[in-house]
Structures are given as structure tokens and as C-alpha cells.
Design a protein around this nucleic acid. Structure first.
Length: 475
RNA sequence: GACCCCUUCGUCUAUCGGUGAGGACACAAGAUUUUCAUUCUUGUAAGAGGGGUUCGAUUCCCCUAGGGGUCGCCA
């Protein structure tokens, strides 16, 4: 039975990298018929951010990534928030202490900083020098009696090669000499990631740990913990990183990394999911467009890449445009509404809105562009001087008068009829295409480009077309 | 610096020893089009370098180089 978890620390918002980790866990669970668990790793009190958990869940839900167990959902392995599991961690830590696998360390942060500075100066490998390991029981009792703060450290074996199989990378080998005596319990009584995640993964019966590559170098500590506890480790899957265009770890500095910002800016969940899925995973055929359901069907860990991928906004934009054009029109119409509101545009009636969106989606990238594009119909910019002059020219006025005379006053005109009418006009007035079209575009949209005429007429309606022609003739 | 991971077009990637090294984005050209787009066609563009193994290496092994990650009482 596959049980996997997404275990973010709630520091504010969902990161693109976090989304990819969550997505791969989700896809793997759905593909295998397994269970997908959300666990909140809030063991750092200093980084507490109110509402972060709610935001995280809300964002994931917006993307249709759903959990089987987790905070607010329940499950047989709860609680799913680490700050509510402190007793468990303390109990397990005590076992380690009793068995001699862990020891108390009374060193202050200042002492440690100094120690590290010295090691660095001497060019030594920076790690805890174990000065507290040799404290006698009496010394420890004395410090305890005085109430001196302390942490619990894991006593790493000094020479030991850890070998393990990573599903993506194959056999990996690491020397314990490189590993520090990691803090397990902090002086505030909270566990560190290393203890909490190992304990939770065990008690929550996690079968595959799928997480970012940044955890690879912690493997000796984690493996050693499993050994000390006498537990069987899960399968390991370390995902490649997502990078900035300059090849550094994806960061706020160079990119927008908050998923909710993308959503807000008008990216579609379908595009975001599809794009992020392709950052490190590829189907066996060369298909690149996948719905979430299709991804669940196709996704396997075997086809996840080893090497990190650069976040290419260009391709995301293309993909968003693709979904904008290819998702059912009514869905796009519905989702475009908030963006009209954001631009303080009164949302036209359903029929008109649909016509506008149908036309706009052909030339837009984001949902927000749709509202932007609609402005030429809903509230055209004032004509600039250059355009005004152009409309005052003899030829332009001839065109506008001609339309005024030959266009039905109201009602609808279909594409066929309109095209015929235009052909008629061009031959009547003996004008070249451009000279004929430009005045009408300027009169109707106040700009010299836009969608094809039938679309404009259909969106505006004949009455409004006449109004705008009339106004242009008043210049 | 130490340790670990990674290395195919600018970017995301396919290739499970034998290919004209394929696809997608971007870019360029062309077609359609009054314009802006969409759409379609075509093109430019890649196996980091050096050793092996093999009849044959992008593919397997080693070395070098480059990039990244980690080295916290953060996750």
C-alpha cells in the first residue's frame, strides 16, 4: 500500500518548488491507488506565520490537488500538525537518550558560533566538536539542577559508510564522517526536522519519501535514526531542483515563486499544473499537454529526471495561452469575470461577454489580458491627435459616410453579409484595402488594429457601430 | 573548502549500444489574413572535454571541467 506525504513548513505561501513536490506526491499516490497525506511541519516557532496553513491548503485546493489525510480532513494517523505531536517526539528522543544514541549539549549559540569560526579559520571541516559528549553524569546533573538550557544531539557513528537506493538516482553512498551530531530536540523543547520527519514518517506508515534534492545530504542522519530506532526506512525519492534562469535554486529574488500570485495574475490552474509537471517529468511518447487526470494515469517515478530544470516563464506563458484557447469557452468566460471586476469594468451580459472572450482568447496569454483586451470594446481610449487628423481626411470620411448609409440600422449582420458589404464598399469607393479599413477601425476602436471586422460588429452591435461612426464624423 | 548530486539544441526534454540524434517553447522565414492575433509549413540550433570497454558509443566505466545542493537549536 503506497502512502506518501507532502510535508511543507507553513512559512507563508506555496512555493513553485513546493507545488512540484506536492504534485509529484499526489500523482504518484493517485497513479498507484495509494494515500496522499498532508503534514504540517511547524516545528520552528520563530518562523510562525498566521494563516499560512490555511493559505497553503486553499491554494492546493484551487489547483485540485486533494488530500486523503491531513489537518481538517482527519485520518487514522493524526494529528497531522507537528506542533500537536510534541509528546511523541519527546518520548522517542528519550529512548535515544536512554540507549546512548543521543546526548545532551549545553553549548550556547555563541559558543557554537565561536567554535565554527575557529574551525573555519583552520580550514577544518565544520562540525560540532562533541565537547558535551564527555560531560560526567555529575556535571550533567549539576547543569540540569541549575536549569541550564540544553539541546539533544544525535551521536553519529564516526566511521560508517551509508548506502541506500534512491529511486531516481540509484545507489548512493555517503560517509558518516561528513555528518554533524545533528540537534534532535531544540532548547525550546521542539524537535528539529530530522527527528520529527523520521518519527512521523514511521508512525504515519509512509512508504515513499518523495522530497527535494536539498535533503539528499541529510540522508546519513536519517538512515542512522532509522537504525537507532530499529525501524525499516521507506523508499527514497529525491527530486531534482527547480532553478532560476541563472541556474541558482529557484528564489523569490529572480522569479515570482508564490503559486497564488500566478493564479492571481491570471494563470490557469490547468496550465500551472501541466507546466510544473513537465519540469522534471516526461511522458513516454512526446505528448506535452496533459490534464490532471491524464497525469495521474501516466505519471511514474521512473520517468522523473535526475537533473534540475530551469523555470522557463516563456513556455508557461505559451501553455497558458494554449489552455486559454482550448478549454471550453464557457469555463474561460466564467473565470475571466473577476478580472473584469479588477479593472472596474462592468461585466457585459452573458452573450456579449462570451463574444468578447471568444475573440480575445485568440490573442491573449493570461485571464487578466482578456479584460485588458476587452477595453477597446467597452471603453476605448480617447483618440490621439494623429488619429483624429486621419479621420478628418477626405478619404476617411468617405468610408464612414458609406458605412453610415449602407449598414442596416439595427439587428444582426452575419459574417457573410458583412464581407459582401465590405467588398462592395471597397469597389464603390475605389479604395485600397488599408485605406478602407483603417478609418473604420479608428472610428470603432480608436486604434488601427483589432480583431476582424465581423467580430467587432458582432460584439459592438450595429447600433453601437453607428454611434461610434457618428462620433467620428463629428470631429 | 569538504562531501554529495547533476551534465543532449538558448530552455524543457526523447533516446533503455547501431537514429539522417526526435518533439515542445523561444527565434527566423513563408502561407492564410486589411491590421493585431490564431492556425499551418519550413528552417537555424545539441550529446562539456579526455581516456577506456565494444565490431560499434549520446547511451557502460574512469578522469578532468562546469553547474547545483548541503555543511543551523530553518525546513
Amino acid at each position: 500500500m503506497v502512502r506518501v506525504r507532502f510535508a511543507p513548513s507553513p512559512t507563508g505561501y506555496l512555493h513553485i518548488g513546493g507545488l512540484r513536490t506536492a504534485l509529484y506526491n499526489y500523482l504518484f499516490a493517485r497513479h498507484t491507488g495509494g494515500t496522499f497525506i498532508l503534514r504540517i511541519e511547524d516545528t520552528d516557532q520563530s518562523r510562525f506565520v498566521p494563516d499560512a496553513v490555511e493559505n497553503l491548503i486553499k491554494t492546493l485546493n484551487k489547483l485540485d490537488i486533494t488530500f486523503d489525510e491531513g489537518p481538517g480532513i482527519g485520518g487514522d494517523y493524526g494529528p497531522y500538525v507537528q506542533s500537536e505531536r510534541l509528546d511523541l517526539y519527546r518520548k522517542e528522543a528519550q529512548k535515544l537518550l536512554d540507549a546512548g544514541f543521543a546526548y545532551r549539549c549545553f553549548c550556547s549559540p555563541e559558543t557554537l558560533a565561536q567554535m565554527r569560526a575557529e574551525q573555519q579559520n583552520k580550514g577544518e571541516f565544520v562540525k560540532y566538536d562533541r565537547r558535551c559528549l564527555n560531560l560526567t553524569p555529575a556535571e550533567i546533573q549539576a547543569k540540569l539542577a541549575k536549569g541550564e538550557p540544553y539541546v539533544l544531539r544525535l551521536k553519529m557513528p564516526e566511521t560508517r559508510i551509508f548506502r541506500f537506493k534512491d529511486i531516481i538516482r540509484g545507489e548512493v553512498e555517503m560517509d558518516s564522517a561528513q555528518s554533524d551530531d545533528q540537534v534532535l530536540i531544540k532548547s525550546d523543547g521542539y524537535p528539529t526536522y530530522h527527528l520529527a520527519s523520521v518519527v512521523d514518517d514511521h508512525y504515519m506508515d509512509i512508504s515513499y519519501v518523495i522530497r527535494g534534492e536539498e535533503w539528499l545530504s541529510s540522508m546519513p542522519k536519517h538512515l542512522w535514526l532509522y537504525e537507532c530506532f530499529g525501524w525499516t526506512p521507506p523508499q527514497w525519492v529525491h527530486l531534482p531542483l527547480i532553478l532560476n534562469p541563472d541556474r541558482t535554486k529557484l528564489s523569490k529574488r529572480m522569479n515570482d515563486v508564490a503559486v497564488e500570485n500566478y493564479l492571481e495574475r491570471g494563470y490557469l490552474k490547468e496550465a500551472l499544473i501541466n507546466f510544473v509537471a513537465l519540469l522534471g517529468w516526461h511522458s513516454a511518447d512526446d505528448r506535452e499537454i496533459f490534464s490532471l487526470e491524464e497525469l495521474c494515469q501516466e505519471f511514474t517515478l521512473e520517468r522523473v529526471n535526475k537533473s534540475s530544470a530551469i523555470f522557463d516563464l516563456n513556455k508557461l506563458n505559451w501553455m497558458n495561452g494554449w489552455y486559454l484557447r482550448n478549454l471550453p469557452l464557457d469555463i474561460i468566460v466564467e473565470r475571466s469575470k473577476p478580472y473584469f471586476e479588477k479593472e472596474n469594468l462592468t461585466i457585459p451580459d452573458f452573450d456579449k461577454l462570451t463574444k468578447i472572450v471568444a475573440t480575445a482568447r485568440e490573442r491573449c496569454t493570461l485571464l487578466s489580458d482578456l479584460a485588458q483586451y476587452s477595453k477597446m470594446f467597452l471603453c476605448p481610449q480617447p483618440l490621439n491627435i494623429e488619429y483624429q487628423d486621419f479621420l478628418k481626411k477626405e478619404d476617411s470620411r468617405k468610408v464612414l459616410f458609406w458605412f453610415q448609409k449602407n449598414l442596416p440600422q439595427e439587428g444582426d449582420i452575419d459574417v457573410e453579409q458583412l464581407n459582401q458589404l465590405v467588398q462592395q464598399g471597397i469597389s464603390d469607393l475605389e479604395l485600397k484595402g488599408k485605406a478602407f479599413y483603417k478609418p473604420i477601425y479608428l472610428a470603432l476602436l480608436h486604434q488601427d488594429y483589432g480583431p476582424e471586422l465581423p467580430a467587432i460588429f458582432s460584439i459592438l452591435g450595429l447600433k453601437e457601430v453607428h454611434n461610434r461612426i457618428y462620433e467620428a464624423l463629428q470631429l
